[in-house]
C-alpha cells in the first residue's frame, strides 16, 4: 500500500515533448516510474522517449489504460489540460505548472468536482511513492523507502524534510507536494487523511506556511481522527504581514494566518510542532519512539 501513486500506476505526461516534459519524464523513467506515454496535441502517432505520443488524453487512456497524469503544460493552457484529463477518466492528476491564472483554476476546480478524480497542485513538486513511482520534479535519490508520509506546500522544503526523515532512519512512504497557489486541488487536510488511512505510513510530517487556514483545518481533523504521530512545521514566522513570500498563497492577511497562530492551533490539536525546520527528522523519530514505547 501507499497513496495516490505506486508501481502499478500507469502514467502519462501532458506536455510530453516540451523541454520541461522531456527532461522530467526522463528523470521519472530513470527512477523506475511506469510512464506509459504522453500527450502533445498535433504530435499524435509519433514516439518520444521510446513511448507513444497521443493527440488527446482520451486516446492515451483508451490505448494505454493510463490512470495517472502529470502536467507540464504552459500556464495559459494548463487549466484546460486538467479538465481534459478529468474528462478522459484519469484518476490522479498532478499539475506541476506554475503561474496559472486564478480565474482559470476556479473553473477547473469546479469542473472536476463530482468527477471521480483527484487533482494535486498546481504549482507543486508532485507526488512520490518511494521506490515505486515518482510523479513529479523532486530529486528521487532523497526519497528512500520507509514509513513516514509527508504533506507539504513547498518544493525544496519537502526535499529538506524528506532528507532529514531518511537520515533519521525512518524513510518515506509517499510525499505529497500540494502546491502553494491560492486554489489547489487537494488540501492539507485531504492529503493528511490519505496518509492517515495508509497502513504502511506510521507517522506524518505536515509542512505548511503562512496564509490561509489549511493547516488549521488539517489540525482540527487530526485532533478528531488522528491515529498516528504528526510533526508539524509552519514556515514564515519572520515574514511581515501583507507581503507575498514567493508563493501566491503565502501572505499574512489576518491574525489567524500568521505562523504563530497556526503553530498554536497545531499544538492544541496534539501535533508535534517544531520551531526549527532543522529538527523535523529528529522530532519525528522521537515521536515514533513514544508511540512504540
Amino acid at each position: 500500500m501507499s497513496v495516490l501513486v505506486n508501481k502499478n500506476s500507469k502514467i502519462i505526461v501532458q506536455g510530453f515533448t516540451g523541454t520541461e516534459g522531456t527532461f522530467h519524464a526522463t528523470q521519472m523513467i530513470e527512477y523506475g516510474t511506469n510512464v506509459v506515454g504522453g500527450v502533445t496535441p498535433g504530435k499524435g502517432g509519433s514516439k518520444h522517449l521510446d513511448r507513444p505520443v497521443f493527440n488527446t488524453v482520451q486516446q492515451a487512456v483508451e490505448s494505454t489504460g493510463a490512470d495517472v497524469s502529470i502536467i507540464f503544460v504552459p500556464p495559459a493552457f494548463a487549466a484546460d489540460a486538467i479538465m481534459e484529463s478529468a474528462e478522459a477518466g484519469i484518476k490522479v492528476i498532478v499539475c506541476i505548472t506554475e503561474g496559472i491564472p486564478t480565474r482559470d483554476m476556479i473553473t477547473a476546480k469546479e469542473y472536476i468536482k463530482g468527477r471521480n478524480c483527484r487533482l494535486i497542485g498546481p504549482n507543486c513538486p508532485g507526488v512520490i511513492t518511494a521506490g515505486e513511482a515518482k510523479v513529479g520534479i523532486m530529486p528521487g535519490f532523497v526519497f528512500k523507502k520507509g514509513k513516514i508520509g509527508i504533506v507539504s506546500k513547498s518544493g525544496t522544503l519537502t526535499y529538506e524534510a524528506a532528507d532529514q526523515v531518511v537520515k533519521a532512519g525512518l524513510g518515506i512512504t509517499t510525499a505529497i507536494g500540494i502546491g502553494g497557489d491560492p486554489i489547489i486541488g487537494t488540501s492539507t487536510k485531504e492529503a493528511v487523511e490519505l496518509l492517515m488511512n495508509d497502513p504502511e505510513t506510521e507517522g506524518i510530517v505536515m509542512i505548511g506556511e503562512i496564509g490561509g487556514t489549511m493547516e488549521a483545518d488539517a489540525a482540527y481533523w487530526i485532533k478528531q481522527n488522528g491515529t498516528k504521530p504528526v510533526v508539524g512545521f509552519i514556515a514564515g514566522k519572520t515574514a511581515p504581514a501583507g507581503r507575498t513570500m514567493g508563493h501566491a498563497g503565502a501572505i499574512v492577511g489576518g491574525a489567524d494566518d500568521t505562523a504563530d497562530a497556526k503553530m498554536k492551533i497545531l499544538r492544541e490539536c496534539g501535533i508535534h510542532v517544531v520551531e526549527s525546520p532543522a529538527v523535523i527528522g529528529k522530532t519525528m523519530a522521537a515521536a515514533l519512539k513514544k508511540v512504540t514505547a
Binding site: G155, L157, E209, A235, K237, T238, G246, H247, S276, P277
Partner: peptide, 22 residues
C-alpha cells in the same frame, strides 16, 4: 524555493539574528 526561503529566515531568527531579506 519559497518555502525553504521562509524556513531559512526562521532559522536565522532562531540563531539570534534577524532576516535582512527573503
Amino acid at each position: 524555493g519559497a518555502g525553504l526561503a521562509m524556513a531559512t529566515m526562521d532559522i536565522i531568527k532562531l540563531s539570534g539574528g534577524d532576516p535582512a531579506n527573503f
